[in-house]
């Protein structure tokens, strides 16, 4: 008798739970959005007024000149170069890492354990260590001041983490699905494209987001390889507003706001894929 659930009480309980959850959710929105607003609001401030007004008050008056200033300073050049190199790097990285994760997750072969451990080890390579050797290589290849010099480092540095995550994702794919496909006459190569890749969509979108943000904001390699103003990427655009003794903070925030926009848009598009990703495939199977 005790075990019979009282639907009325359950409903009240659940309503309370939801109210609490939504309140917390809204508080968390303040925590995450507040700073974003800070960034945007301060991009509408006149640098000269910053000293007097501080940064935590609304600008008075609102100053709109920063945006035309940034845009006339070649912003779109920086922007499209970044877009170009990040897109290519990202696509290449996703292809190569899913290629690598497949055998690591779904095949038995001799060096599997060793390669997997090696990839985990590669995750622990600190980036600054590679700066000098990679610079020397890039120099020898004659790629200094060439946008494509970033391709190798961007793909390579995203690989270990991506392979690691994707391997984890692919391991959770039920082996029955593979069995079924094998009976249908799929070989190892078809299997990857027909079964494994579609089922890894959720993992791939996570990785796309994770790495796109990293590459989009990458500074150290770009700063080292690209000297010519005609090939510089977006994070280097900030340099034009930093002097030896001071920087133009509102202009920097303007650049940062403008550079964050595409990643926001991209997330809005991709986040939907995150949910659909695997479910669609799994239900069919």
């Amino acid at each position: 008798m005790n075990k019979i659930i009282n639907p009325q009480r359950e409903k009240t309980k659940s309503r309370i739970a939801w109210t609490v959850a939504i309140t917390l959710a809204v508080i968390w929105v303040v925590v995450t959005v507040g700073p974003f607003i800070f960034m945007v609001v301060n991009s509408f401030r006149d640098k000269k007024m910053m000293g007097r007004q501080g940064v935590l008050h609304f600008p008075d008056p609102w100053y709109f000149q920063n945006y035309p200033d940034v845009i006339s300073n070649g912003f779109f050049g920086y922007f499209f170069r970044s877009l170009f190199i990040v897109s290519i790097s990202l696509i290449l990285m996703l292809i190569i890492s899913s290629f690598a994760a497949y055998p690591l997750a779904r095949m038995k072969f001799k060096l599997r354990g060793f390669l997997y451990a090696g990839i985990v080890a590669m995750m622990s390579v600190p980036m600054h260590v590679t700066l000098i050797p990679v610079y020397q290589m890039t120099n020898q290849m004659g790629l200094i001041n060439n946008l494509f010099s970033l391709l190798g480092p961007y793909v390579a540095f995203a690989l270990p983490m991506s392979v690691f995550i994707l391997t984890g994702f692919m391991m959770t794919i039920p082996s029955e699905m593979e069995e079924a496909a094998r009976i249908d006459g799929c070989n190892k190569y078809n299997m990857f494209f027909r079964i494994i890749l579609p089922l890894s969509k959720a993992g791939l979108s996570t990785l796309a987001i994770y790495n796109a943000v990293g590459m989009w904001n990458e500074f150290a390699f770009a700063n080292t390889f690209l000297n010519d103003i005609r090939v510089k990427t977006l994070p280097l655009a900030l340099g034009a507003f930093k002097g030896e003794h001071s920087q133009d903070t509102p202009l920097i925030l303007t650049v940062l706001t403008l550079s964050a926009l595409p990643t926001v848009v991209m997330f809005i598009i991709f986040q939907d894929k995150l949910v659909k990703g695997m479910m669609a495939g799994a239900v069919k199977g």
Partner: peptide
């Protein structure tokens, strides 16, 4: 909720 991750470390 995802916005913090989209801001660059400089910002």
């Amino acid at each position: 909720w995802f916005l913090p991750y989209l801001m660059s470390s400089v910002a």
